[in-house]
Design a protein around this nucleic acid. Sequence first.
DNA 1: TCTCTTTTTTAGAATTATTCTAATTCCATT
DNA 2: AATGGAATTAGAATAATTCTAAAAAAGAGA
Lengths: 129, 129
Amino acid sequence: MTKYEKQIYEIVNFSGSHLTAEQVFMELKNTYPSVSLATVYNNLNKLCETGKIRRVLVEGSPDRYDRIARHDHLVCQRCGRLADVQFADLTASLRQQLGEDFFSYDLKVFYLCPDCRKNEIIHKKGGCE
Amino acid sequence: MTKYEKQIYEIVNFSGSHLTAEQVFMELKNTYPSVSLATVYNNLNKLCETGKIRRVLVEGSPDRYDRIARHDHLVCQRCGRLADVQFADLTASLRQQLGEDFFSYDLKVFYLCPDCRKNEIIHKKGGCE
DNA sequence: TCTCTTTTTTAGAATTATTCTAATTCCATT
DNA sequence: AATGGAATTAGAATAATTCTAAAAAAGAGA
Protein backbone atom coordinates (compact mmCIF):
# COMPACT_ATOMS: atom_id res chain seq x y z
CA MET A 1 0.00 0.00 0.00
CA THR A 2 1.41 3.35 -1.00
CA LYS A 3 0.96 6.36 1.21
CA TYR A 4 -1.81 7.63 -1.03
CA GLU A 5 -3.64 4.35 -1.14
CA LYS A 6 -3.38 4.04 2.61
CA GLN A 7 -4.54 7.57 3.31
CA ILE A 8 -7.45 7.30 0.85
CA TYR A 9 -8.46 4.08 2.51
CA GLU A 10 -8.47 5.78 5.91
CA ILE A 11 -10.50 8.71 4.62
CA VAL A 12 -13.17 6.48 3.13
CA ASN A 13 -13.21 4.05 5.96
CA PHE A 14 -13.43 6.46 8.84
CA SER A 15 -15.32 9.36 7.34
CA GLY A 16 -18.63 8.11 8.63
CA SER A 17 -20.28 9.30 5.44
CA HIS A 18 -20.35 8.36 1.76
CA LEU A 19 -17.78 10.48 0.02
CA THR A 20 -17.51 11.17 -3.69
CA ALA A 21 -14.13 11.06 -5.43
CA GLU A 22 -14.11 14.84 -5.37
CA GLN A 23 -14.71 14.89 -1.62
CA VAL A 24 -11.99 12.35 -1.00
CA PHE A 25 -9.72 14.53 -3.12
CA MET A 26 -10.47 17.58 -0.96
CA GLU A 27 -9.82 15.63 2.22
CA LEU A 28 -6.62 14.16 0.90
CA LYS A 29 -5.32 17.61 0.06
CA ASN A 30 -5.20 18.41 3.75
CA THR A 31 -2.40 15.89 4.09
CA TYR A 32 -0.94 16.03 0.57
CA PRO A 33 -1.73 19.43 -0.91
CA SER A 34 -0.23 18.61 -4.30
CA VAL A 35 -1.94 15.29 -4.96
CA SER A 36 -3.84 14.97 -8.23
CA LEU A 37 -7.40 13.88 -8.83
CA ALA A 38 -6.24 11.08 -11.11
CA THR A 39 -4.43 9.52 -8.18
CA VAL A 40 -7.62 9.59 -6.18
CA TYR A 41 -9.51 7.81 -8.95
CA ASN A 42 -6.71 5.30 -9.47
CA ASN A 43 -6.60 4.39 -5.84
CA LEU A 44 -10.34 4.34 -5.28
CA ASN A 45 -10.56 1.89 -8.16
CA LYS A 46 -7.76 -0.22 -6.81
CA LEU A 47 -9.30 -0.27 -3.33
CA CYS A 48 -12.63 -1.36 -4.80
CA GLU A 49 -11.04 -4.10 -6.89
CA THR A 50 -9.20 -5.49 -3.92
CA GLY A 51 -12.36 -5.36 -1.84
CA LYS A 52 -11.07 -2.92 0.76
CA ILE A 53 -13.84 -0.41 0.16
CA ARG A 54 -17.05 -0.46 -1.84
CA ARG A 55 -18.68 1.79 -4.37
CA VAL A 56 -22.23 3.02 -3.76
CA LEU A 57 -24.30 4.06 -6.75
CA VAL A 58 -27.00 6.64 -6.31
CA GLU A 59 -29.19 8.13 -9.02
CA GLY A 60 -28.11 11.49 -10.28
CA SER A 61 -25.02 11.77 -8.16
CA PRO A 62 -21.40 10.81 -8.72
CA ASP A 63 -20.23 7.49 -7.35
CA ARG A 64 -19.74 7.32 -3.63
CA TYR A 65 -17.30 5.24 -1.62
CA ASP A 66 -18.02 3.47 1.59
CA ARG A 67 -16.46 1.22 4.19
CA ILE A 68 -16.87 -2.47 3.59
CA ALA A 69 -18.38 -3.45 6.96
CA ARG A 70 -21.82 -4.95 6.43
CA HIS A 71 -24.66 -2.46 6.50
CA ASP A 72 -27.47 -1.28 4.27
CA HIS A 73 -28.59 2.10 2.97
CA LEU A 74 -31.60 4.32 3.16
CA VAL A 75 -31.90 6.57 0.13
CA CYS A 76 -34.16 9.60 0.26
CA GLN A 77 -36.54 9.48 -2.68
CA ARG A 78 -36.71 13.25 -2.77
CA CYS A 79 -33.25 14.64 -2.08
CA GLY A 80 -31.05 11.61 -2.65
CA ARG A 81 -29.38 11.77 0.75
CA LEU A 82 -27.88 8.49 1.94
CA ALA A 83 -28.10 7.13 5.45
CA ASP A 84 -26.75 3.97 6.97
CA VAL A 85 -29.04 1.38 8.43
CA GLN A 86 -28.46 -2.11 9.66
CA PHE A 87 -31.12 -4.56 8.62
CA ALA A 88 -30.91 -8.21 9.56
CA ASP A 89 -28.19 -10.00 7.61
CA LEU A 90 -29.72 -11.70 4.58
CA THR A 91 -26.71 -13.75 3.53
CA ALA A 92 -27.91 -17.13 4.73
CA SER A 93 -31.44 -16.67 3.47
CA LEU A 94 -30.38 -15.44 0.04
CA ARG A 95 -27.85 -18.19 -0.30
CA GLN A 96 -30.45 -20.78 0.47
CA GLN A 97 -32.96 -19.27 -1.95
CA LEU A 98 -30.36 -18.93 -4.68
CA GLY A 99 -29.01 -22.42 -4.14
CA GLU A 100 -25.44 -21.31 -4.67
CA ASP A 101 -22.78 -19.01 -3.32
CA PHE A 102 -22.38 -15.34 -4.07
CA PHE A 103 -19.93 -12.58 -3.19
CA SER A 104 -22.06 -9.96 -1.52
CA TYR A 105 -25.31 -8.12 -1.77
CA ASP A 106 -26.48 -4.54 -1.83
CA LEU A 107 -29.75 -3.46 -0.27
CA LYS A 108 -31.15 0.04 -0.68
CA VAL A 109 -34.41 1.21 0.82
CA PHE A 110 -36.05 4.28 -0.71
CA TYR A 111 -37.82 6.47 1.79
CA LEU A 112 -38.40 10.10 2.72
CA CYS A 113 -35.63 11.40 4.97
CA PRO A 114 -36.55 13.33 8.14
CA ASP A 115 -35.68 16.70 6.59
CA CYS A 116 -37.79 16.08 3.52
CA ARG A 117 -40.63 14.78 5.63
CA LYS A 118 -40.73 18.12 7.42
CA ASN A 119 -40.74 20.21 4.27
CA GLU A 120 -43.48 18.54 2.35
CA ILE A 121 -42.87 21.22 -0.28
CA ILE A 122 -41.58 19.90 -3.59
CA HIS A 123 -37.87 20.53 -4.04
CA LYS A 124 -35.56 18.25 -5.97
CA LYS A 125 -32.38 19.46 -4.31
CA GLY A 126 -33.39 21.40 -1.26
CA GLY A 127 -32.72 20.99 2.45
CA CYS A 128 -30.92 17.66 2.43
CA GLU A 129 -27.24 17.02 1.92
CA MET B 1 -49.43 9.36 -22.86
CA THR B 2 -47.97 10.34 -26.20
CA LYS B 3 -47.24 7.73 -28.81
CA TYR B 4 -43.55 7.87 -27.95
CA GLU B 5 -44.08 7.59 -24.24
CA LYS B 6 -46.40 4.67 -24.76
CA GLN B 7 -44.11 2.86 -27.15
CA ILE B 8 -41.08 3.39 -24.93
CA TYR B 9 -43.03 2.03 -22.03
CA GLU B 10 -43.91 -1.07 -24.01
CA ILE B 11 -40.33 -1.59 -25.10
CA VAL B 12 -39.00 -1.38 -21.55
CA ASN B 13 -41.81 -3.33 -20.02
CA PHE B 14 -41.88 -6.24 -22.39
CA SER B 15 -38.28 -6.53 -23.51
CA GLY B 16 -37.48 -9.15 -20.91
CA SER B 17 -34.07 -7.57 -20.45
CA HIS B 18 -32.59 -4.41 -18.99
CA LEU B 19 -32.18 -1.97 -21.81
CA THR B 20 -30.01 1.13 -21.89
CA ALA B 21 -31.36 4.40 -23.32
CA GLU B 22 -29.34 3.68 -26.44
CA GLN B 23 -30.92 0.26 -26.82
CA VAL B 24 -34.39 1.64 -26.31
CA PHE B 25 -33.56 4.22 -28.97
CA MET B 26 -32.56 1.49 -31.45
CA GLU B 27 -35.73 -0.46 -30.76
CA LEU B 28 -37.92 2.59 -31.04
CA LYS B 29 -36.43 3.38 -34.43
CA ASN B 30 -38.04 0.25 -35.82
CA THR B 31 -41.41 1.88 -35.32
CA TYR B 32 -40.41 5.55 -35.60
CA PRO B 33 -37.27 5.79 -37.71
CA SER B 34 -36.91 9.54 -37.25
CA VAL B 35 -37.25 9.75 -33.49
CA SER B 36 -34.46 11.50 -31.60
CA LEU B 37 -32.40 10.29 -28.68
CA ALA B 38 -33.46 13.30 -26.61
CA THR B 39 -37.03 12.09 -26.82
CA VAL B 40 -35.97 8.74 -25.49
CA TYR B 41 -34.24 10.33 -22.51
CA ASN B 42 -37.14 12.67 -21.89
CA ASN B 43 -39.64 9.88 -21.84
CA LEU B 44 -37.53 7.45 -19.86
CA ASN B 45 -37.18 10.14 -17.21
CA LYS B 46 -40.86 10.88 -17.24
CA LEU B 47 -41.73 7.19 -16.96
CA CYS B 48 -39.36 6.82 -14.02
CA GLU B 49 -40.76 9.86 -12.25
CA THR B 50 -44.29 8.63 -12.61
CA GLY B 51 -43.27 5.22 -11.36
CA LYS B 52 -44.18 3.33 -14.53
CA ILE B 53 -40.69 1.92 -14.98
CA ARG B 54 -37.57 1.87 -12.86
CA ARG B 55 -33.94 2.70 -13.38
CA VAL B 56 -31.30 0.10 -12.60
CA LEU B 57 -27.80 1.27 -11.81
CA VAL B 58 -24.87 -1.00 -12.58
CA GLU B 59 -21.22 -0.20 -12.17
CA GLY B 60 -19.42 0.85 -15.31
CA SER B 61 -22.43 0.70 -17.58
CA PRO B 62 -25.00 3.30 -18.63
CA ASP B 63 -28.28 3.35 -16.75
CA ARG B 64 -30.68 0.54 -17.53
CA TYR B 65 -34.45 0.55 -17.47
CA ASP B 66 -36.66 -2.17 -16.18
CA ARG B 67 -40.27 -3.10 -15.60
CA ILE B 68 -41.66 -2.17 -12.23
CA ALA B 69 -43.02 -5.60 -11.18
CA ARG B 70 -41.30 -6.69 -8.01
CA HIS B 71 -38.15 -8.70 -8.55
CA ASP B 72 -34.49 -8.59 -7.63
CA HIS B 73 -31.26 -8.72 -9.60
CA LEU B 74 -28.21 -10.86 -9.85
CA VAL B 75 -25.18 -8.92 -11.02
CA CYS B 76 -22.16 -10.77 -12.33
CA GLN B 77 -19.10 -9.61 -10.45
CA ARG B 78 -16.90 -10.27 -13.45
CA CYS B 79 -18.80 -9.23 -16.57
CA GLY B 80 -21.54 -7.05 -15.14
CA ARG B 81 -24.37 -8.99 -16.76
CA LEU B 82 -27.74 -8.59 -15.08
CA ALA B 83 -30.21 -11.38 -14.44
CA ASP B 84 -33.61 -11.35 -12.82
CA VAL B 85 -34.28 -13.33 -9.70
CA GLN B 86 -37.18 -13.42 -7.33
CA PHE B 87 -36.22 -13.57 -3.71
CA ALA B 88 -38.81 -13.58 -0.96
CA ASP B 89 -40.50 -10.21 -0.61
CA LEU B 90 -38.80 -8.23 2.14
CA THR B 91 -41.29 -5.40 2.40
CA ALA B 92 -42.98 -6.45 5.64
CA SER B 93 -39.75 -7.37 7.36
CA LEU B 94 -37.94 -4.18 6.37
CA ARG B 95 -40.88 -2.06 7.35
CA GLN B 96 -40.98 -3.63 10.74
CA GLN B 97 -37.24 -3.26 11.27
CA LEU B 98 -37.30 0.33 10.07
CA GLY B 99 -40.33 1.22 12.12
CA GLU B 100 -41.79 3.37 9.39
CA ASP B 101 -43.01 3.27 5.82
CA PHE B 102 -40.89 3.48 2.71
CA PHE B 103 -41.47 3.57 -1.03
CA SER B 104 -39.59 0.58 -2.36
CA TYR B 105 -36.33 -1.25 -2.08
CA ASP B 106 -33.63 -2.47 -4.40
CA LEU B 107 -31.76 -5.69 -3.81
CA LYS B 108 -28.74 -6.72 -5.87
CA VAL B 109 -26.79 -9.90 -5.35
CA PHE B 110 -23.25 -10.06 -6.75
CA TYR B 111 -22.27 -13.43 -8.05
CA LEU B 112 -20.45 -15.16 -10.89
CA CYS B 113 -22.74 -15.76 -13.86
CA PRO B 114 -22.81 -19.21 -15.52
CA ASP B 115 -20.73 -18.04 -18.49
CA CYS B 116 -18.05 -16.54 -16.31
CA ARG B 117 -18.04 -19.56 -14.07
CA LYS B 118 -17.14 -21.68 -17.08
CA ASN B 119 -14.32 -19.46 -18.26
CA GLU B 120 -12.42 -19.03 -15.08
CA ILE B 121 -9.94 -17.07 -17.19
CA ILE B 122 -9.68 -13.41 -16.26
CA HIS B 123 -11.53 -11.17 -18.68
CA LYS B 124 -13.15 -7.92 -17.70
CA LYS B 125 -15.45 -7.79 -20.68
CA GLY B 126 -15.47 -11.20 -22.26
CA GLY B 127 -18.13 -13.80 -22.87
CA CYS B 128 -21.10 -12.21 -21.17
CA GLU B 129 -23.58 -9.72 -22.56
C1' DT C 1 25.59 4.50 -3.40
C1' DC C 2 24.68 3.84 -8.34
C1' DT C 3 22.08 1.91 -11.95
C1' DC C 4 18.17 -0.64 -13.66
C1' DT C 5 13.39 -1.88 -13.51
C1' DT C 6 8.90 -1.46 -12.07
C1' DT C 7 5.27 0.97 -10.02
C1' DT C 8 2.93 5.15 -9.00
C1' DT C 9 1.71 9.60 -9.91
C1' DT C 10 0.62 13.34 -12.83
C1' DA C 11 -1.62 16.85 -16.08
C1' DG C 12 -4.39 17.26 -19.31
C1' DA C 13 -6.83 15.42 -23.26
C1' DA C 14 -10.45 12.30 -24.48
C1' DT C 15 -14.58 9.85 -23.81
C1' DT C 16 -19.26 8.99 -22.62
C1' DA C 17 -23.69 9.39 -20.78
C1' DT C 18 -26.84 12.58 -19.94
C1' DT C 19 -28.96 17.15 -19.64
C1' DC C 20 -29.89 21.53 -21.41
C1' DT C 21 -31.40 25.03 -24.78
C1' DA C 22 -34.04 27.17 -27.82
C1' DA C 23 -36.31 26.49 -31.98
C1' DT C 24 -39.77 23.81 -34.23
C1' DT C 25 -43.48 20.73 -34.79
C1' DC C 26 -47.62 18.74 -33.33
C1' DC C 27 -52.36 18.70 -31.69
C1' DA C 28 -56.40 20.02 -29.52
C1' DT C 29 -59.65 23.72 -29.08
C1' DT C 30 -61.69 27.72 -30.29
C1' DA D 1 -57.75 28.72 -39.96
C1' DA D 2 -55.76 30.77 -35.74
C1' DT D 3 -54.05 30.08 -30.96
C1' DG D 4 -51.74 28.08 -27.17
C1' DG D 5 -49.49 24.64 -24.75
C1' DA D 6 -47.01 20.44 -24.76
C1' DA D 7 -43.78 17.34 -27.09
C1' DT D 8 -40.03 16.77 -29.97
C1' DT D 9 -35.75 17.91 -31.98
C1' DA D 10 -30.65 18.79 -33.06
C1' DG D 11 -26.95 19.89 -31.34
C1' DA D 12 -24.31 22.29 -27.78
C1' DA D 13 -23.01 21.89 -23.04
C1' DT D 14 -21.92 19.55 -18.88
C1' DA D 15 -19.89 16.48 -15.70
C1' DA D 16 -17.82 12.33 -14.14
C1' DT D 17 -14.57 9.30 -15.22
C1' DT D 18 -10.95 7.09 -17.96
C1' DC D 19 -7.06 7.27 -20.79
C1' DT D 20 -2.40 8.56 -22.27
C1' DA D 21 2.17 9.21 -22.18
C1' DA D 22 5.52 11.31 -19.61
C1' DA D 23 7.75 12.26 -15.09
C1' DA D 24 8.68 10.90 -10.49
C1' DA D 25 9.32 7.69 -6.96
C1' DA D 26 10.38 3.41 -5.02
C1' DG D 27 12.76 -1.01 -4.89
C1' DA D 28 16.37 -4.32 -5.91
C1' DG D 29 20.48 -5.86 -6.73
C1' DA D 30 25.50 -5.07 -7.67
